[in-house]
Amino acid sequence: MRFIVNGQHVEAVFDLRTSLLDLLRDHLGLSGSKKGCNQGACGACTVLVDGERINACLALAVQYQDRAINTVEGLSEPGALHPLQSAFLEHDGFQCGYCTPGQLCSAIAMAAELSRGVPSAVTVDLAAETIALSHDELRERMSGNLCRCGAYNGIVEAITETFSPQKSAQEAA
C-alpha cells in the first residue's frame, strides 16, 4: 500500500489491523506522532491528512492509502523550525514534550479551519463570514489535545502569537 508521508511516496506492507499511528511509528520509524491513549481521547496522535487534523490512533491505515499525510517530522527541518515550533519554545508550550507533536499538528490545522470559517462550539454568530482567533475559540478548538503537564497557557500563547492577524500583519510588513 502506498502513502505520501511528509511529501515522500512510501510503500508499506502491513496487517490490516494496523492503525495509521502504528504504521507511522512502528513501520515507518516516524515516532514523532505519539500514542497517549489509543482511544481517540487525548490527541497526542494528531496528524494531518490532506491538511486536515485527525486522530491517527483511530484511523485504520488501510483507509488512508494514497493520501497526503503530514506529521510533526514534516513540519520543519532540524535547525529551521516552523514558526509555531519556535513559539512553543519561546512560550514554554510543553514540559515533557509528549503531547507536543499532537498539539502542533492540531494547531496548524485548527488555524486553517478557522481561516476557512469553520465554526466551533463557542462561536456566537454562526452566520459570521469570518471568525476571530479569540482566547475562547482557541481553547475550545484545541480541547481535543490533552496536556497532563499543564502547559496549556504556553500553548495558547504560542498559537496566538503564530496565528493571530496582528502577527501575520507584522510578518507581511
Binding site: T46, E52, L58, E113, A127, G144
Partner: peptide, 23 residues
C-alpha cells in the same frame, strides 16, 4: 445548515473534538 438549522451545527460542534469531527 448554519443558517437554517443552527441547532444541528451547534450539536455537532458540541461533540467530540476537532480531530474526531473531521473523521
Amino acid at each position: 445548515v448554519r443558517q437554517h438549522f443552527p441547532l444541528l451545527s451547534r450539536a455537532i460542534l458540541a461533540g467530540a473534538s476537532g480531530q474526531i469531527r473531521n473523521m
